[in-house]
């Protein structure tokens, strides 16, 4: 049963990832990423990370992707030049990607890490539940939690500053364009 679910999730995740890279219209790329994120959330469930899977679907595939869809619709289709900026960029990129994959795979296979060639050790019933993760987060990792909330606040302020419509900037841009 787990095997079947894993392969469904894996095919969905790989297909979504390939579609994000390959599709020319950014809007379709965003939709492919949503499919990818939902498949990955299924894999998280197999790994008994229920809370992370739920957060992935609600926060990521829901809220963050809505932001992407809005920006993709606002900016519209972006024309990408067919020619490479550096000669032979595409074959080189695939070579680098294959090298990363092979290197990581060798590292994983050769690592001999604990329990990697099994389904993992037995875990207690509450593993990955909101209660367990939340308790760790608010006790042992409190400083990381506070730093994360501070980072979110800074990002929100930064976004407001960046996206603010300013008359002066627009006249500057017009001057720059001549």
């Amino acid at each position: 049963m787990k095997e079947v679910l894993f392969w469904i999730g894996a095919i969905g995740a790989i297909g979504g990832a390939a579609a994000v890279v390959a599709l020319r219209n950014p809007f379709y790329s965003v939709l492919a990423l949503i499919a990818h994120l939902v498949s990955i959330a299924g894999l998280f469930l197999i790994l008994q990370a229920e809370f992370i899977a739920a957060a992935q679907v609600v926060v990521y595939a829901g809220a963050v992707m809505v932001l992407y869809v809005f920006v993709a619709a606002y900016v519209g289709g972006i024309e990408e030049p067919k020619l490479d900026a550096i000669p032979g960029q595409r074959p080189l990129a695939f070579l680098v990607g294959a090298a990363i994959f092979i290197e990581l795979s060798i590292a994983i296979v050769a690592s001999g890490l604990l329990a990697l060639d099994s389904g993992g050790p037995e875990v207690a019933l509450g593993f990955g539940s909101p209660a367990g993760v939340g308790k760790l987060m608010l006790e042992r990792f409190l400083i990381a939690f506070e730093a994360a909330s501070l980072l979110l606040l800074i990002a929100a302020i930064g976004a407001v500053v960046l996206a603010e419509r300013r008359r002066r900037d627009e006249s500057d841009a017009e001057e720059a364009l001549g």
Binding site: K2, E3, F6, A10, A13, I14, A17, L43, I46, L47, G97, A98, I100, F101, L104, S105, I108, V109, A115, L116, D117, S118, G119, G120
Partner: peptide, 15 residues
């Protein structure tokens, strides 16, 4: 279900 499958999948997605 071997856990190494998940790691290889994650390497493939990263690449």
């Amino acid at each position: 279900m071997d856990l190494s499958y998940f790691l290889v999948l994650s390497a493939l997605l990263f690449a």
